[in-house]
């Protein structure tokens, strides 16, 4: 793969109970992943309003990933099912608007899967970096 200097901006939403803990575990085990990934902690993946993702793309994010507990393991019993449905809709709409579906992703990462978290982030950053900079949703009026 071609190595570029370009560094994508990646926003990762992680649920407090599984994926955020999985990210911490990746840290505990010193499993490296690109620094382009910045994590926002939310109580549950179902807290992620589609508005947040639109906002991220509007503000120049190149990729957005949402991580939650595995289906059936949600701390709030059903939150990740809502996430799965909502994001399926949102991502197909974003794809229609020109934000490639590779720039958006939902992953299930448990608190015990530090290695999976790091691997997922490595893969996601690589995928997004290969797509290049994202300009589609950028609304110049919003730029500070």
């Amino acid at each position: 793969m071609q190595v570029t200097e370009y560094k994508p901006k990646i926003v990762a939403f992680c649920c407090n109970w599984c994926s955020y803990a999985g990210a911490d575990l990746a840290g505990n085990n010193r499993l490296a992943y690109p620094a382009e990934v910045k994590i926002i902690r939310v109580p549950c993946s179902c807290r992620v309003n589609p508005m947040f993702i639109l906002r991220a793309f509007q503000r120049g994010a190149d990729g957005v990933i949402i991580c939650g507990c595995h289906p059936g393991d949600c701390h709030y019993t059903s939150g990740n099912y809502y996430t799965r449905r909502r994001m399926a809709l949102l991502f197909s709409m974003l794809n229609y608007l020109g934000i490639e579906k590779e720039r958006t992703r939902v992953e299930w990462v448990s608190a015990a899967e530090g290695a999976k978290f790091a691997a997922t982030m490595n893969d996601f950053v690589q995928t997004v970096a290969a797509l290049g900079e994202n300009k589609r949703l950028e609304d110049l009026r919003c730029k500070l």
Binding site: K9, V11, K38, I40, V42, R47, N49, M51, F52, R55, A56, R59, G60, A61, L144
Partner: peptide, 11 residues
């Protein structure tokens, strides 16, 4: 709050 976080990351 979360929007503000998104903005801060994407700045």
């Amino acid at each position: 709050q979360i929007m503000a976080e998104v903005d801060a990351i994407c700045k």
